[in-house]
Amino acid sequence: MIKRIIVISLMLSALLYAETKSENIKENKKENIYEHNCIPCHRYLPSSLGDMYMRYLKTFSGEMTLKAALKAFLKEPLEQTSVMSNLFIDRFSVKDKTLLNDKQLDEAINIYWDLYNVRNKLK
């Protein structure tokens, strides 16, 4: 009897642990959609995401314009629409199309905008 109770308890604990872990993964995935989908690739590039943000800002100026341009590029990356230099593109080529849907893309871009927004940092 004691043996059975121990086995059931262990099984229940294992089940609870598995459920909690899967929820955490989901949450982290949601929170870090930008980190999970953008940082891993850009980590290996010589131009940081911050530098690229400043390039976008210098080219598109306004929040709506920038976000729209970035989204369009991520969905359909072209050499002509890239803000990076020819040298950079020759060296690393243009990225592949994003696998994120529109909602996820908007979420990632918003996180990116908020992260590097100059308005909050200027003194």
Binding site: M64, R119, L122, K123
Partner: peptide
């Protein structure tokens, strides 16, 4: 140099402001 430098340039001769293409104030 942004964001290592974040201090907006000021002058004794004038005050200034910058606005983006959507006419939203930056600083």
């Amino acid at each position: 140099y942004f964001p290592s430098r974040t201090e907006y340039p000021r002058s004794y001769n004038f005050n200034s402001a910058i606005y983006d293409i959507e006419r939203v104030k930056i600083f």
